[in-house]
Design a protein around this nucleic acid. Structure first.
Lengths: 152, 152
DNA sequence: TTGCTCCTCACGTCACGTGAGGTGGC
DNA sequence: TTGCTCCTCACGTCACGTGAGGTGGC
């Protein structure tokens, strides 16, 4: 996954602060980096990692894909690659040096990925809706038991 | 987790057939058993596991809690224990030998668990809805780029 | 009897958790 | 200078995956 270069908008965070705001472990941040999912914005001369707002957003995205959709880190890498291409498309959108046909091809690939993600989300949502209906049915039955016990 | 005893309604499946209908690995079935999440209905004299419909349903429940809600197997065990108590309540509902106060207490505990599950499901659903809105926004933007390329 | 399925170890893997031992920076 | 945070190994864990070597059942 080749990360999109950017300028840091806010201030840079060290790994402890980054882990706290993201709600993940320092180990997880180092592990995602080790797998090449992202690279911290910079290191201090002493070797300490410095995370930009873009880094934080990227890790938040990784977590969302993992925990919400249940993707493994190989699958997350594929989605991140696509995210980066989408950013790239937007950057070269008004760049006349990029061929229109080339841009359209990139866009079509991104569209395919997003529509795939949409399917995954929809399927999960449907599963949760069924689960919720089941839970509500159980709750109603337990309430009936409790009221039956109260009014014999 | 103490499983609720029952009679097999359909026929018994060996581990290969059970794994196929459930869409899980044989290893996973043996592992859930090893952790005490359930016990196959019987074993043949030769030692082969035989799964009843109730066993299949129980494993399907385990998978649902794992994959849909993201629970680990310790948390799954807690929910299964509660499922079993709910079944127990329904079984002794008309049993006069069980004290009404005792039944009500069991019911209240089950209700608490179900309402907790409801919270978890709702939170996940909200997260998925946000994710879906984001995906739809991306799709709309990519479509705009593609149409812009088609009509310069 | 021949295949195919099942059995029990037991080591490998993924996504980290958790110290061990040492250095950096306000 | 003293703490606290950070660093890099490196072994442990959870939920299985994947053979190794052997037995069961139509």
């Amino acid at each position: 996954v080749t990360q999109v270069a950017s300028v840091p908008k806010g201030q840079l965070l060290n790994i402890g602060a980054a882990a706290t705001v993201l709600g993940v472990s320092e180990r997880a941040l180092r592990y995602y980096q080790q797998l090449g999912l992202f690279t911290p914005y910079e290191r201090t001369p002493g070797g300490m990692r410095r995370y930009s707002d873009a880094d934080i957003a990227r890790v938040a995205r990784i977590r969302e894909l993992q925990k919400l959709l249940g993707l493994n880190l190989d699958e997350v890498a594929v989605v991140l690659r696509n995210d980066d291409r989408l950013t790239e498309i937007r950057e070269v959108y008004h760049n006349e040096r990029t061929g229109a046909e080339e841009r359209a091809e990139l866009a079509r690939e991104c569209l395919e990925m997003q529509e795939h993600l949409r399917q995954v989300v929809q399927a999960k949502r449907a599963g949760l809706d069924n689960f919720l209906a089941d839970v509500d049915a159980r709750i109603a039955r337990i309430r009936a038991v409790l009221e039956g016990a109260a009014n014999p």
